[in-house]
Computed example of a mutant assay.
Amino acid sequence: MFIVLLTTLFMLIPAAYLYTRQPQFGQVPDEAEFRNRKLTSPFADGEFSNQVYTPTLTGEQNRFVALAQFLFGKDENAIPAIALPSKKTDLHALDKAQNVVVWMGHSSYFLQVNGKRFLVDPVFSDNASPVPATNRTFKGSNIYTTGDIPEIDYLLITHDHWDHLDYPTVTGLKSKIRQIITPLGVGNYFEQWGFNKAIIHEGDWNSVIQPEKDISIHILPTRHFSGRLLAKNKTLWGSFAIITPGHNIYVGGDSGYGPHFKAIGERFGHFDLAILECGQYNENWRFIHMMPEETAQAAEDLNARAMLPSHNSKFKLAHHPWNDPLNRVSKASQGKSYRLLTPMIGELVEQDNPAQRFSQWWQ
């Protein structure tokens, strides 16, 4: 029996090694790239960290137990029993003069602002995990493909986690992407995947990228972490503020609640729209993902006039019921100063139409 186990182990180790050498895993940048630079984001001993103390896990569970639990754990109503409803917008047919947002489920969305097209964290694969057949999309949630996407002026990637940076999706979009904007180190993956280095723009927290007149894209802090396999925090994570004449838009990445939201709100005055994570939360990791009530508070901290909750309704990455995020954030948003936007996946959101309303489709 021991010989059989030993033989199996010797077979699995090289197989696992070869599997992780696939291009989708990518190689993290050398820490020397950041060691001697003057950074606004905390960086020490080869790793980035948050502005405030942020343990990844707060309970007694270790990282590997937590990973195994969300990959293979069973939770009541965590996956919809039927296919989710959707309204697939034809993105190719949109008038570029329209200022719109289309949520594609989880943290993927398409925006048109002042005639420019933005695509954020697109994931059109059937799963959000390097382990085959795990973290599969909910039925009815994965309605877009790379062929549905028109030419994109700016691809924004908030961080390198699998459910935000998807190798098959971004490589399938390669010919359609004019510019790529990421936090520090994340552009390194795109270079490895054959993208032209000249179109890749990386930035530290609070840096500003002004690719053309009347558009500035600010890379801003979040409270999270990074890593695609075992290496952790070798690249930076963040959020974006898209500032144009007439539109201030906050594009949030993954984040626990923290003082950065209020600081960002004070810096920019207000946001016409804030897209904020609301889903995949748990008490054991509450410092890296917000509870829905904290999402509502973050929208107020940002002085948002409208808020769209994302990071839900496509994958099971936590133990809560699949529709718990939208139920709770709807309740927490009652009486608040912002409008809560809850479109179906694929439904067109008109940024300049304050009278637009949405159904409680998740009920």
Rank of each mutant, 00 (worst) to 15 (best):
I180L: 04
E31Y: 09
F2E: 14
G185H: 05
I82H: 00
G346K: 04
F43D: 05
A198M: 02
T8G: 05
E212I: 00
G227E: 06
S49H: 05
Y257D: 15
A299M: 08
I264T: 15
R178W: 00
V251W: 09
G256F: 08
G246Q: 13
V102N: 03
E212G: 01
L67I: 12
T8P: 00
A296R: 07
K38S: 15
V208T: 11
T171C: 10
T56V: 13
F70C: 00
S337T: 15
Y19F: 15
W103H: 13
P292S: 06
Y109N: 15
F190Q: 05
F190P: 02
R136Q: 12
L184H: 05
Q22N: 12
Y167R: 05
S49F: 03
Q179M: 06
N327Q: 13
V170P: 03
G140C: 02
P325G: 07
N62E: 08
F315R: 06
T134I: 03
A299P: 12
V349G: 07
G105I: 03
P168N: 11
S49I: 03
I181R: 05
V4D: 13
I243R: 14
Q22H: 13
S330H: 12
A299D: 12
A318L: 07
V65A: 09
L94I: 07
D90I: 01
K116Q: 15
G269H: 08
P183S: 04
T158M: 02
I215K: 05
T89A: 00
I242D: 14
Y189T: 03
S330Y: 12
R178P: 01
F118Y: 15
N284H: 10
K197V: 01
T235F: 04
D214F: 03
S175C: 02
W362K: 03
K262H: 10
L302H: 11
K87A: 00
M290T: 13
K116M: 14
P14E: 10
I79C: 00
I157K: 02
I79V: 13
P29T: 08
Y19G: 09
S337N: 15
F271H: 08
H319L: 10
E266R: 12
N127D: 07
I209L: 10
S207D: 11
H319E: 15
E212P: 01
V208D: 00
D352G: 12
D153G: 03
F190A: 03
R178T: 10
G73D: 02
Q210V: 00
Y189R: 10
R228Y: 07
Q192M: 04
W193V: 07
G187A: 02
R357K: 14
E300T: 14
R339V: 04
K331W: 04
S107L: 08
P55C: 09
Q112G: 06
P245I: 14
P321G: 09
F271W: 08
A306T: 11
Y144D: 02
F48S: 04
P23L: 13
E350H: 13
N99W: 06
P14G: 08
V131Y: 10
F358T: 08
K314S: 03
R117Y: 05
W237T: 09
L220M: 10
M1Y: 10
R339K: 15
L18A: 14
H161R: 11
F240H: 14
I79N: 01
I275E: 10
Q192H: 04
G238N: 08
Q61W: 10
D352L: 14
N135I: 07
L119N: 09
T146L: 01
I152A: 02
T58S: 12
S313W: 01
T54P: 09
S226F: 03
T56R: 14
A274G: 11
K336L: 07
V120S: 13
